[in-house]
Design a protein around this nucleic acid. Structure first.
Lengths: 228, 228
DNA sequence: AGGAAACTTGAAAAATGAGTAACGAAGCCG
DNA sequence: CGGCTTCGTTACTCATTTTTCAAGTTTCCT
């Protein structure tokens, strides 16, 4: 299977670059590399890739700046790489527009799965006012959500939250982002609300709320909504 | 197939206007253009089109105001255009009476499909002045409503409200939208009127007004009319 | 493995929203 | 002119939703 997608890797460690390069090429992707923040931005601008893998632990320019600069115009997916135990970095990156993250060291299987996921999502047009996600059907015009063609009764807050999840299928949404979008910017530390409402949503949309398949917890970071 | 429908495009970007103009004309529509909010309202008023395409990201008058002003009297469909990542705008626009939305950039196929969809819906209403919804029969010309073939005695306000519900079957209509359409834009906070008249309508059309099957309450948001 | 932090869950309290009845004013009609 | 209908308005009760709290569980980190 050939997929032709072009990926730009921005990382200062030669070893990681080498590893990524080989892994990605053997899986049919075209790969471009950048060693520094400046080089990354230049290469992304001169020849925009379909996806960027960005190490946010870069020595020059801290990686976060690169992300911000890229997001001023670059709309394709960006996956950030981070060392372990840097949740602050991850949350910050997701809040700044990263689509997903990977903690180093990562299994190549996981890397490829994440890449496929964000690339697939980018292809499907989310313009449609009726969104079909597995068993769930969301109609943004009628403001209804169906599970297996049965209308779900959701409160206003529940609907907003689920609609937000659905529009960002597969992407990790941080606590802060969700709180800002649904409750407003003055509720950023009310993580508890989120927990309560996620529990309620799970009761309504999951087949087995104890083992959620749709709303996945990303501990310390946020939640991720999966269609299947 | 020639359809002759007339479409008014309100957008400040010349490129988009050009694109829409060509696409629509080659598909048999008559097209009129407006560059600003004021021009849009004037043109819509002087020569009402069958459909309006409105960019809600207009520089002057913010687009939302145009929608509100138009909806004070314009009853034909309005499709709003919005840039990506402005979900708040879209939700607001739908609440204020937009019939559908498109996220820029859009595929022309999708644009045409949406236009056909809303026009078809609107046409069946006019061609077929009698709307059959479950046990209810609504005759827009005679301004009469029957339940099981028995003529219902409705007051003018009740009729307006029910007709509005019927035209938007299945869709949530917000308090504000209903108030604006039935009472006018200066009654937006008189939610109580709505409650009173909804109660009266339920007494007349529901089999069991305590457990309404037709006019469903969406707490904190508005009401939804269901045929079955 | 063990302690701390983060998460889940159920249920109460508080806040907000909805439904109902009733009444005066305005308009209509005989 | 006087009865009837409809609308706007108010007061009150009831229902739903949101928030808060508390107890139990999982996950994370050393």
């Amino acid at each position: 299977m050939s997929n032709e997608a072009e990926i730009l890797v921005i990382d200062d460690e030669a070893q990681i670059r080498k590893l990524l390069d080989i892994t990605l090429r053997t899986n049919g992707y075209r790969v471009n590399e950048a060693q520094t923040a400046r080089e990354g931005i230049t290469k992304a601008a001169s020849h925009p890739p379909d996806l960027i893998l960005l190490d946010i632990g870069l020595p020059d320019g801290s990686g976060h700046d690169v992300l911000l600069k890229l997001r001023e115009w670059f709309t394709n997916p960006i996956i950030v790489l981070s060392v372990l135990n840097s949740e602050t970095d991850i949350v910050k990156a997701l809040d700044n527009g990263a689509n997903d993250y990977l903690v180093k060291p990562f299994r190549t299987g996981e890397l490829l799965a994440r890449i496929r996921s964000v690339l697939r999502k980018n292809q499907t047009d989310e313009n449609n006012p009726v969104l079909q996600l597995g068993k769930l059907t969301i109609d943004f015009v009628a403001r209804t959500i169906k599970k297996n063609n049965a209308l779900l009764k959701l409160t206003s807050t529940e609907y907003q939250l689920l609609a937000l999840f659905a529009k960002n299928e597969g992407k990790v949404l941080t606590h802060q982002y969700l709180l800002r979008m649904v409750w407003g910017p003055s509720y950023l530390n009310q993580t508890q609300y989120l927990r309560v409402f996620v529990a309620q949503l799970r009761k309504k949309i999951e087949d087995n709320p104890n083992q959620p398949k749709h709303i996945i917890t990303e501990s310390g970071v946020g939640y991720r909504f999966m269609a299947e």
